[in-house]
Simulated assay, not measured.
Amino acid sequence: MAANAQSIILHQYDISPFSEKVRVVLGIKGLDWFACDEPVIMPKPELTALTGGYRKIPVMQIGADIYCDSQIIIRELERRFPSPSIHAGSDNGTGWGIAMWTDRVLFQAAVAIIFGGGTPLADEAFIKDREKLTGRPFDIEGMKAAAPMMAEQFRAQLGWLEEQLSDGRAFLPGDNPGLADASAFYNLAFVRWTSPNGVKLIESFPGVAAWEKRVAGIGHGNRQEVSREDALDIAKATASTEKANADPGEPNGLKPGDTVTVMADDYGRDPVSGELVSSSAQHIALKRNDPRVGDVVVHFPRAGFLVMKS
């Protein structure tokens, strides 16, 4: 089966932790999708042709609609494929708040343990790439010094998961897996891939370790492969399905047709500019053009991103 304009194409690589979060959601929903493997470090010419400069992984493509950041990717998957929902149990909106915790506080603790744990994971090219991504030194020696303290932080947060699971529930929201499970799980998967010391911390919590196996057992849906060139060809041959829509609640009066620039508020702050197509409290969509892919619409979440009118 070949990918087409309706296919879910996930621009990713296998050891990307944030891609793992999306892959778990694809598994929860039992979806067919295509993996388009991107380089771990720059340059990423095919990816940036689609995004206008955004370089972080993962990015989802459906036709000529390009979704940057796991938050907006998962929101769009939920919109298009609402059953089974990622909002399991009584969760409706709080799962997004849990995701913000796991993407920032828990993730940073995991990173310090992984790269400060003595396992040689980062070569010179990787370090230079991540310094450009973050705008600050990728300080391996500093991470080594911080690793014991960050292990305490990681352990404390694992304890929260253990407490949530202490009533015997199968998943964090209850009987069925949801956004909270995918969000917490990918950090543990990242640690398991890379850090023997971190694995010992995980396995010191029996409830967490058992839950982790249940989430891993969900799988990743039905994965197939597509090349980067084929993904670009699909974008070029397709028109975006996003419709112009003005949000009367926009705090700064943004409206369709405005030229705006969007960038992340933490790291990887590569600005992407374009013509505003639609916006809401949770998303913003920009139309832009690239010679390789023609007109595309690039979508971003609002939480965690800055929007500036040009």
Results as ranks from 00 to 15, higher is better:
2 A>T: 15
6 Q>W: 11
6 Q>H: 13
7 S>T: 04
8 I>Y: 05
9 I>W: 01
9 I>V: 10
14 D>K: 08
16 S>G: 01
18 F>E: 00
18 F>T: 04
19 S>G: 13
20 E>S: 10
21 K>T: 00
23 R>Q: 13
23 R>G: 02
24 V>E: 01
24 V>C: 04
26 L>M: 06
27 G>T: 09
33 W>Y: 09
33 W>S: 02
34 F>V: 03
38 E>V: 07
39 P>A: 10
40 V>F: 10
45 P>A: 05
46 E>A: 07
49 A>E: 02
49 A>W: 01
49 A>Q: 03
50 L>F: 03
51 T>E: 02
51 T>C: 01
55 R>Y: 06
57 I>S: 05
60 M>K: 05
66 I>M: 09
68 C>D: 02
75 R>D: 06
76 E>Q: 14
77 L>I: 14
79 R>P: 02
79 R>M: 09
79 R>K: 15
80 R>H: 11
82 P>V: 12
83 S>R: 13
85 S>N: 09
89 G>R: 05
90 S>E: 12
92 N>H: 14
92 N>P: 00
93 G>R: 12
94 T>C: 10
95 G>D: 06
98 I>M: 10
99 A>G: 06
100 M>G: 05
102 T>V: 06
106 L>C: 07
111 V>T: 10
117 G>L: 12
117 G>S: 08
119 T>G: 06
119 T>D: 08
121 L>R: 12
124 E>N: 12
126 F>C: 08
127 I>D: 03
130 R>V: 06
130 R>I: 04
130 R>N: 08
133 L>Q: 07
134 T>D: 06
134 T>C: 09
138 F>R: 05
144 K>T: 12
145 A>P: 07
145 A>D: 08
148 P>V: 14
149 M>C: 13
150 M>I: 10
153 Q>D: 13
154 F>L: 12
156 A>Y: 08
159 G>F: 15
161 L>Q: 03
162 E>T: 09
163 E>N: 13
164 Q>L: 13
166 S>P: 09
166 S>M: 14
171 F>N: 01
174 G>D: 03
175 D>W: 05
182 A>Q: 00
185 F>C: 03
186 Y>P: 00
194 T>M: 04
195 S>D: 05
198 G>N: 01
198 G>A: 01
201 L>W: 03
204 S>K: 14
206 P>R: 11
211 W>V: 00
217 G>Y: 07
217 G>P: 01
217 G>N: 11
217 G>K: 12
218 I>Q: 04
218 I>D: 00
219 G>E: 05
223 R>A: 12
223 R>Y: 03
224 Q>V: 14
228 R>S: 15
230 D>S: 14
233 D>C: 13
233 D>M: 15
236 K>Q: 14
236 K>H: 11
236 K>P: 03
239 A>C: 09
239 A>G: 12
244 A>G: 08
245 N>E: 15
249 G>F: 09
251 P>T: 10
252 N>H: 15
253 G>W: 01
254 L>E: 03
255 K>G: 00
260 V>Y: 02
260 V>C: 09
263 M>A: 14
269 R>K: 15
277 V>D: 00
281 A>V: 13
285 A>H: 09
286 L>Q: 01
289 N>L: 11
291 P>F: 12
292 R>S: 10
295 D>W: 10
297 V>R: 00
298 V>T: 07
299 H>P: 02
300 F>D: 00
303 A>D: 07
307 V>Q: 01
308 M>P: 00
308 M>D: 11
310 S>E: 11
